[in-house]
């Protein structure tokens, strides 16, 4: 089993702040490995344990994202591909998925490509399905578990709003993964962190991957951000601390006035 996991470093959204013009205040904001991706890495490593083979990780990001990639190696991944070039600046999801698909083709033959279902920063959920489309392989989203791999097929559990599906997909395939609610993330061990330093870490520039360069970066991105702004704030409303009976009455009255209950 040769598995590749696509990963991304993201700012920790629980402490991200923006100024009034919609510019991110970077100071004091930690960069972390996207939690959806970490789950995908851990699921891939579980498969490796069961079926053997190798787990590689890949990111398309500025150099500083190495910390997140290194964490994947420390968790047990065998090899890393880091594609970094100014040419990729301003990429939207179409341009990013295109460049990733080229890098994947160059990196070799993988039985399984895994990725987080979405990243907590952009939250588009586009990359997995779009990489699969560029590569012409099937994919399944919202994958909570890879149940088994047998006879060139993976059996996976994919979550729906009101339940789940058991899906069998032919390999090679891409799985966009969603951590189950009670998932406990592993912290890399000391020995894992030390071992990670001597694992193969491959850097590629735009010139290292074959493809249509006009589809890279901002030029290859159909979408443009017109502007960013802070969301309209919800303000603190009326809070009652006593006379519950009376408070309930007043609230129900107000809800009827607003026609949210009939």
């Amino acid at each position: 089993m040769n598995i590749l996991v696509l990963v991304k470093q993201v700012p920790d959204t629980s402490d991200v702040k923006f100024d009034e013009r919609g510019v991110m205040i970077r100071e004091g904001v930690q960069s972390i490995l996207n939690v959806f991706d970490q789950f995908a890495v851990e699921e891939a490593l579980r498969l490796k344990q069961k079926y053997g083979g190798e787990v590689s990780v890949m990111t398309l990001a500025p150099e500083q994202a190495k910390t997140a990639v290194q964490k994947c190696l420390a968790l047990g991944a065998d090899k890393a591909y880091h594609i970094s070039d100014r040419a990729f600046g301003g990429s939207d999801t179409l341009a990013t998925s295109y460049a990733l698909s080229l890098a994947i083709k160059k990196a070799g033959n993988f039985d399984l490509i895994m990725a987080g279902n979405q990243a907590t920063d952009g939250d588009t959920g586009h990359i997995g399905p779009q990489v699969a489309e560029w590569l012409g392989i099937p994919h399944v989203s919202y994958v909570e578990q890879v149940v088994s791999i047998d006879n060139g097929k993976a059996l996976v559990k994919s979550i729906l709003e009101d339940g789940y599906r058991m899906v069998e997909v032919e390999l090679p395939a891409l799985l966009a993964c969603l951590p189950p609610t009670n998932f406990e993330y592993t912290n890399p061990s000391m020995s894992g962190i030390i071992k990670a330093k001597s694992k193969p870490y491959i850097w590629w520039k735009a010139d290292d991957i074959d493809g249509d360069k006009s589809k890279f970066g901002l030029n290859g991105s159909p979408t443009r951000v017109l502007k960013m702004y802070p969301p309209p704030k919800r303000s603190r409303g009326t809070v009652f601390t006593e006379n519950y009976q009376d408070a309930v009455k007043k609230i129900v009255e107000a809800l009827m006035e607003k026609k949210v209950i009939e």
């Binding site: 939207d92 999801t93 179409l94 998925s97 295109y98 939250d123 588009t124 959920g125 586009h126 990359i127 997995g128 399905p129 779009q130 699969a132 489309e133 560029w134 994919h139 399944v140 989203s141 919202y142 979550i159 729906l160 709003e161 966009a176 991105s221 159909p222 979408t223």
Partner: peptide, 23 residues
């Protein structure tokens, strides 16, 4: 932007090589 729409949708944008905005 249901679980299904978020699954098949992005593939369409890639197939048609056009822009897509999520959620």
């Amino acid at each position: 932007a249901t679980h299904t729409g978020r699954e098949y949708g992005p593939r369409i944008a890639a197939a048609l090589q056009t822009g897509m905005t999520a959620d």
